[in-house]
Amino acid sequence: MNAKSISAQWRPAAILGLLVLLLIAPFVLPTYPLSVLTEILIFTLFAMSLNILLGYAGLPSLGHSAFFGTGGYAVGLLAKYLGTPAPLALLIAVVAGIALALITGPFVLRTHGAYFLILTLSLTQVLFGIVWLWRRVTGGDDGLPGIPTPKLPFLLGRVSDTANFYYLTLIVVGIAIATIAWVVRSPFGLALVGIRENERYLEGLGYPTWTLKYVAYALAGGYGALAGGLFAYFKGFVGPGQISWLLAGEGMVMVILGGAGTFWGPAIGTILVLLLRYEVSAFTQRWVMILGIVFILTVLLLPQGIVRLPNRIREIRAQLRREAPLPRPTAPAHHTPSERAVERVIERS
């Protein structure tokens, strides 16, 4: 029995254990750590939604905060102008996120790699600008304060308000994460990994790669907006900072730290980044620097993320023992420069 199937065996038990811990957390934790935990849940959803693009489909988006902010503003505007109840408002937030993705998708998906990165960033900045300047509706840089925190009716009076919103977040995020798990383990999810690995090869197997990317982009947008909507309720406020590209960059770092393309990696990365921010800042002002050092160390030592740390250790130990379980790959087929040039022209077109 190999390591993978052993961990697969334990997976249900581990998830159950985690769930129990999360359920009893409000009875154990004081208010402040509980609100940090709430934030971790929300950003885990954000990072996991981004991971659909970064990790699975291999699309390096630096503009995912656009969806987060869209969800936040959807919730904020609905609460301010219409007093929409939370479940409906969150649903509309998701729809708004998907809509934004469907509108911008045809443009950004024309590009690849670094270009994709910068185009998603540009569009996010434009959205940021619209929100910033359209003061009459969005409140400009003052944002929209006073968003009432929704509460679970069946828990009213039984637990504190913080715990009540925590449970609400846990339910929404839990359901969302379960559906993400389902998406990435479906044939669609496997196809996305194929796109990341080599889009052209996948197309050669008869997959409509563009459509797949478009759907992935829309899904990521929807989940990202859901996280943003929850965050707006959590803070009771939505402002341009929730669209800022710095947030997108932080999301990207969360995903990479934990392990892009792994299911639980983004959760680990989120916990790490947020704990660094809140805990380290409590005893040193230099937490920004420490965060920067963590980023760099991750890239250098664990480019595949913390989640893959056990694998990495196993690899290193195997190397030390000079185990070579399989023959080394032979040298790639001979290519003349002209053939390669033609191949690359094809890749580009």
């Binding site: 998406v183 479906s186 044939p187 669609f188 496997l190 194929g194 197997l205 459509t211 797949l212 899904l219």
Partner: peptide, 16 residues
């Protein structure tokens, strides 16, 4: 991946 071609149904709905 090859065998699953056509079963990915764009919305990602196709079971595990």
């Amino acid at each position: 991946i090859a065998l699953l071609r056509g079963r990915h149904s764009p919305l990602g709905l196709g079971g595990l």
